[in-house]
Design a protein around this nucleic acid. Structure first.
Lengths: 128, 128
DNA sequence: CAAATAGTTCAACAGGCGTTGAATTATCTC
DNA sequence: GAGATAATTCAACGCCTGTTGAACTATTTG
């Protein structure tokens, strides 16, 4: 049985995917899921300038995918971590949208006029 | 037990998500999964010019997410359909990358110097 | 208080890409 | 063959955004 969550609208899903559709942001997320959290550590691993990391982390934070903490002993250090609930919700939305169970058989309302009687028969022939 | 597929590299996943991170392309995919397949029908449903639809369908086709057929009786009509195997693989890659089971406990290699002994204790305090 | 450190913010540039309108191709009808 | 139809391709514009370097804030150290 396929998932019974209602799939999100294309607009909202596209907005979330736009945040993820960047290699460096995904590399940052990848590190965060591996337990790396210090901002400077991310910069070292990815060979990225600190300000660029700040920028991408801000995008991820605005999307609610990432959380921030400050070190209690030395407030200059900040630690980022993945928001598990948000990731969970995102995966569910993605899976619901692309659930293969949603795929319906073809039912075109247009096409050659003479096909009016039985419009949904064999097609193919030339793959273009 | 979580999925045992190895998660894709951030670069390859970002490339695939870039294709999906567009509202109109997602709306097209949404229609294709609902059984609508005629190019003109998509244009009617979405109030989009035909050439723009062609453009987006090309992007989706280059990504392998969509297939094309021509009408056997009237070759002017083309019908698009979702490539189920590609969608399946995409969902699996997405789920594998964002599998919460991948999340490791924090193990920072940097931080305040005096914390050298036990670096991974309580932090939080100010949410910034 | 001055210097150093971790991180953020700002301004500006450059490339990519979605959008648009017109031209082009391919096919079918009369 | 002429005209109509479905779709694609082409050229051009404009905006969004990732990137860069410098300035700025906040905090800690000596």
């Amino acid at each position: 049985m396929s998932k019974d969550e209602l799939s999100p609208t294309p607009e909202t899903l596209a907005k979330q995917l736009k945040v993820l559709a960047d290699p460096k942001r995904l590399r940052i997320l990848n590190l965060l899921m591996s337990g790396v959290q210090c901002n400077c550590e991310i910069g070292d691993s990815l060979n990225m300038p600190a300000n660029l990391i700040s920028h991408h982390l801000r995008v991820l934070r605005n999307a609610g995918l990432v959380q921030v903490e400050r070190d209690a002993l030395d407030a200059r250090w900040v630690y980022y971590s993945v928001n598990e609930e948000a990731i969970q919700a995102l995966v569910e939305a993605f899976d619901a949208f692309f659930d293969l169970g949603r795929i319906q058989p073809r039912h075109p309302t247009c096409g050659p006029k003479r096909m009016k009687g039985k419009p949904t028969k064999k097609l193919i022939v030339k793959p273009l």
